[in-house]
């Protein structure tokens, strides 16, 4: 026990550094995937058949294969096959590759949620807007958008909380996120070796983080509960 209290400050500091990287990956993924998903959803709903077919095919492949494989392919493929490691070396290269893989993967999931949300708005809402003389963009922003948001908050919150935990997959390309940081105390780091509790302790970070997000999403759902769609 005394040893635990002695090691704790060192481990805590190292885990915080790892968590910062986890958080960075999480935020960059959302910043990229939330808008990219909207573009992909417009592509998959396009009336131009070739575009919608290709988009849906890509979405199907990305959603149908493990994110871990996508990570490995995106990270190693350029170097191994083209002989050109495009990501650059070191931690920043790994972070870039991981972010790109996560953005593509999550954008595809988000696009399906957006598409479902947009298509679930009754056609009567568009027709009522039209006969009242609203323009297309007024109809989208003043009438449709908030109804879509209300509909997609529950599935989006599920997906975003899954992302919190999925960031740990970046460990596979040795991104120095929190799992990597926890594991380092098994082999030896900061003068501590053979300890597994730091790895287990990372779970507390995930729990707290996803717990806070759940609270925020519940708040948002409550805020939107004044109307029914």
């Amino acid at each position: 026990m005394a040893q635990f209290f002695q090691q704790f400050p060192t481990v805590f500091a190292a885990l915080n550094v790892g968590f910062l990287q986890t958080l960075k990956l999480f935020i960059c993924t959302l910043l990229g995937a939330l808008p990219l998903g909207l573009l992909i959803s417009f592509g998959s709903m396009s009336k131009f058949k070739p575009l919608s077919l290709v988009t849906r095919l890509i979405v199907w492949v990305v959603r149908g294969t493990p994110l871990m494989i996508q990570l490995l392919i995106i990270f190693f493929f350029p170097g191994l096959v083209w002989g050109k490691p495009i990501w650059g070396g070191g931690e920043s290269g790994r972070f870039l590759a991981a972010t790109v893989a996560f953005i593509i993967n999550y954008a595809c999931y988000f696009s399906e949620i957006y598409r479902g949300g947009i298509q679930s708005i009754p056609v009567g809402q568009h027709e009522a807007s039209q006969v009242l003389g609203l323009t297309k963009s007024q109809t989208f922003f003043r009438v449709v958008l908030l109804q879509v948001v209300k509909r997609i908050v529950p599935p989006m919150s599920n997906e975003i909380i899954t992302l919190v935990k999925d960031t740990s997959l970046a460990r596979i390309i040795a991104l120095q996120e929190i799992i990597w940081a926890g594991q380092s105390f098994m082999k030896g780091s900061h003068g501590i070796a053979g300890q597994i509790w730091p790895l287990f302790f990372t779970g507390v970070y995930y729990l707290l983080f996803s717990g806070i997000l759940t609270l925020l999403f519940n708040k948002l759902e409550k805020k939107l509960s004044y109307f029914k769609v």
Binding site: E127, V131, T135, K150, V229
Partner: peptide, 23 residues
């Protein structure tokens, strides 16, 4: 589109299903 809207607004339509804006 603008001309169409101007013409559209000369008449009004009440739907069977109301189609009010819920929000």
């Amino acid at each position: 589109p603008r001309e169409k809207r101007d013409k559209q607004l000369k008449i009004g339509l009440v739907f069977q299903q109301f189609n009010l804006f819920p929000q």
